[in-house]
Amino acid sequence: MLKIGITGGMGVGKTIVTHMFAVLGVPVYDADSRAKWVMHHHEALRQELLHAFGPETFSEQGELNRTYLAGVVFNNPQRLAQLNSLVHPHVRDDFEVWVASHADKPYVLKEAALMYESEAWKQMDEVIAVYAPMEVRLKRLAHRDAHRTEAEIKAIIAKQLSEEEKMRRAQHVLCNDDRQLVIPQVLALHKSFSSRGA
């Protein structure tokens, strides 16, 4: 079985691309949603987070206080690195358990915005970088994240690994620029991965 990573910055459309693979019957692991699940349900991690970030990390009902946590780490690289060092090892373990449950498939996908930053790429056989030019991304994000200003969106993007670096590191680049057809690109990759992972 091949383990294929899929990544890309905000607004490139990696979720839509990932849905296309899912429609083709490919199991997809969403690292962001699984990280939230693990932070809620892994008791040892919950205790580590409480110790590192204080009682405000969880509400009285036991829900993760994402707004508080985001505020603590957004402009503090040291605190962000601390958070990632706690969460990412548990997500890697969770992914390996999930992979084992899909051992009958030729390949699986792991969608992760922080594929390289979290070093999740080391678990992958290959990585797809989804690409869209900045003007297209900003247009999409202005529609999707209407509660954010363009300056806020650009600030978030600026903290992510550059698209150029992601494309340089990835084995495959899928262009989602609203000009090239995406489905044929997905089908070509699916055919290749299916034949090699079978």
Score class of each variant (00 low, 15 high):
Pro106Lys: 02
Val127His: 02
Val38Asp: 06
His40Trp: 08
Gln123Ala: 12
Arg169Thr: 02
Pro133Gly: 03
Met134Gly: 09
Ile4Thr: 03
Met124Gly: 03
Arg144Met: 02
His147Asn: 13
Leu86Pro: 03
Arg46Pro: 12
Asp145Ile: 00
Ala113Cys: 04
His51Cys: 08
Ala129Pro: 06
Ala35Asp: 00
Glu63Pro: 04
Tyr116Gly: 03
Ala112Trp: 03
Leu80Asp: 13
Lys110His: 04
Ala31Thr: 02
Leu161His: 08
Glu119Cys: 08
Gln180Ala: 13
Leu187Ala: 07
Ala35Leu: 03
Gly62Arg: 02
Glu164Arg: 13
Gly11Thr: 06
Leu24Trp: 08
Trp98Lys: 06
Arg137Ala: 06
Arg92Ser: 09
His143Trp: 07
Ile4Trp: 05
Ile183Arg: 15
Asp177Ser: 11
Arg168Ile: 00
Asp30Ala: 05
Pro27Asn: 12
Ala188Gln: 14
Asp145Ala: 07
Gly8Leu: 07
Trp98Tyr: 08
Lys166His: 10
Met1Trp: 07
Ala81Ile: 00
Asn65Ala: 07
Cys175Asp: 11
Gln47Arg: 14
Leu86Gly: 01
Ser33Cys: 06
His90Ser: 11
Leu174Pro: 04
Val108Met: 05
Asp94Gly: 06
Met39Arg: 02
Glu60Trp: 00
Tyr131Phe: 11
Thr15Asp: 12
Arg92Trp: 07
Cys175Ser: 11
Lys110Met: 09
Leu187Phe: 06
Trp98Gly: 05
Glu126Leu: 04
Met20Cys: 08
Ala132Met: 07
Glu163Tyr: 01
Phe193Ser: 03
Lys14His: 13
His40Val: 00
Leu80Lys: 15
Met167Ser: 10
Glu165Tyr: 08
Val173Ser: 05
Val182Met: 03
Ala198Glu: 14
Glu119Lys: 11
His40Tyr: 13
Arg137Cys: 09
Glu135Phe: 10
Asp104Trp: 00
Gln180Glu: 15
Leu45Gly: 01
Leu189Tyr: 05
Val127Lys: 00
Ser59Gly: 09
